[in-house]
């Protein structure tokens, strides 16, 4: 019976280069011999077929490490050093697993990750989603910076951003997403979310140079001035003062960079003032429950019209629209 392991190492090397990344990681788990061969192999970067998945998602916590590559997911569990993997559409119960009782799940992951880095020397990719719960985690994956166009950081405190964001090349980064990490233990539904201070983060070149920003589920200070240099903004504010909305309207009309600014809010303080200051809105009530109010305003030196939409669902959206899309009967104000 012939076997892959009877191949001369040059041939085996060639085969490895024909395998997609996920298959290499699977093959690593077949036997010790293959594992050490793969770890020592060169895995040329530009082999014809080593298509690198556009997105990596990585979650690291004390109990498990989750690694998602394109449509495939591997989970390394601390318990019995079990490794599970599945395709996008499957749930875990349908996935496959294997135990490596004599190994350490973190080391197993790190070796797989080293393969990934070998396969993508350039460290370029479309999107890197990272959630590392323990800021002092000893799992060091950043031997050099990644060049990702989009970076999604799942965090619970600003220090995590300060620690991990600098590992992404500021020149490549276009879109930055900061999300609240899912909490392990259900905290007794505390309504007052801890404040998430952007100070320090604002000083990072990644923050300064990114074009698009999304902040989800983190209680950042409702100051729009922190976001005015971006092109598109989507941010959650627990409460917004109506003065901030007015300030944003003014800044939006004169900004050379902003094209869209979306605020998700729980409430607007003194919102009755809005109608006084903005004038009567153009109302559309679709089903009587979720309505929206729209205002249109001129943008100096531009053919485009500024549009402000406030919905009863709790969102404020400033965007630029063409003059044609302003509904008849709507007033375009200054």
């Amino acid at each position: 019976m012939s076997s892959l392991i009877d191949f001369p190492s040059v041939v085996l090397d060639k085969v490895l280069n024909e395998l997609d990344l996920f298959s290499v990681l699977t093959l690593r788990k077949v036997s010790h011999g293959l594992r050490s061969f793969i770890d020592d192999s060169t895995l040329q970067r530009n082999s014809k077929n080593s298509i690198f998945p556009p997105k990596i998602r990585l979650e690291i916590n004390e109990e498990f490490i989750l690694l998602e590559l394109g449509s495939k997911t591997i989970q390394y569990e601390k318990h019995q050093c079990q490794v599970l993997w599945k395709k996008e559409s499957e749930d875990w119960s349908r996935g496959k697993s294997k135990m490596f009782e004599e190994e350490n799940f973190e080391e197993l992951f790190l070796k797989d990750f080293a393969i990934i880095l070998k396969r993508n020397n350039s460290r370029r990719l479309e999107c890197f989603e990272l959630g590392i719960q323990d800021i002092d985690s000893k799992i060091d994956i950043f031997s050099s910076e990644f060049k990702a166009k989009e970076v999604i950081l799942k965090v619970s405190e600003p220090d995590q951003v300060l620690k991990f964001l600098p590992f992404f090349d500021a020149g490549t980064l276009e879109k930055l997403v900061l999300m609240a990490a899912e909490r392990q233990e259900q905290e007794d539904e505390k309504d007052d979310k801890e404040k998430f201070n952007l100070r320090g983060i604002e000083e990072l070149p990644q923050w300064k140079q990114a074009k698009n920003i999304e902040v989800q589920g983190l209680n950042v200070a409702p100051k729009i001035e922190n976001f005015l240099h971006f092109s598109t903004v989507k941010v959650y504010f627990e409460s917004v003062a109506y003065q901030e909305v007015m300030l944003l309207k003014e800044k939006f009309a004169t900004s050379s960079t902003l094209t869209r600014f979306e605020i998700l809010f729980d409430y607007i303080t003194d919102d009755e003032q809005l109608n006084t200051v903005l004038g009567e809105s153009f109302k559309e009530l679709d089903d009587g429950l979720h309505g929206q109010e729209r205002w249109f305003f001129r943008i100096p030196n531009s053919q485009e019209i500024g549009e402000l939409v406030i919905t009863t669902m709790g969102s404020i959206v400033f965007s630029r629209v063409s003059r044609d899309s302003v509904p008849g009967g709507a007033v375009v104000r200054d």
Binding site: S3, I5, S23, T26, L27, V30, L34
Partner: peptide, 17 residues
């Protein structure tokens, strides 16, 4: 090797445990 598990790969590639 596409979409295979380690056990399936072991059989396909004739690799001893």
């Amino acid at each position: 090797a596409k979409d295979k598990t380690p056990e399936e790969l072991r059989i396909i590639y004739g690799i001893p445990t």
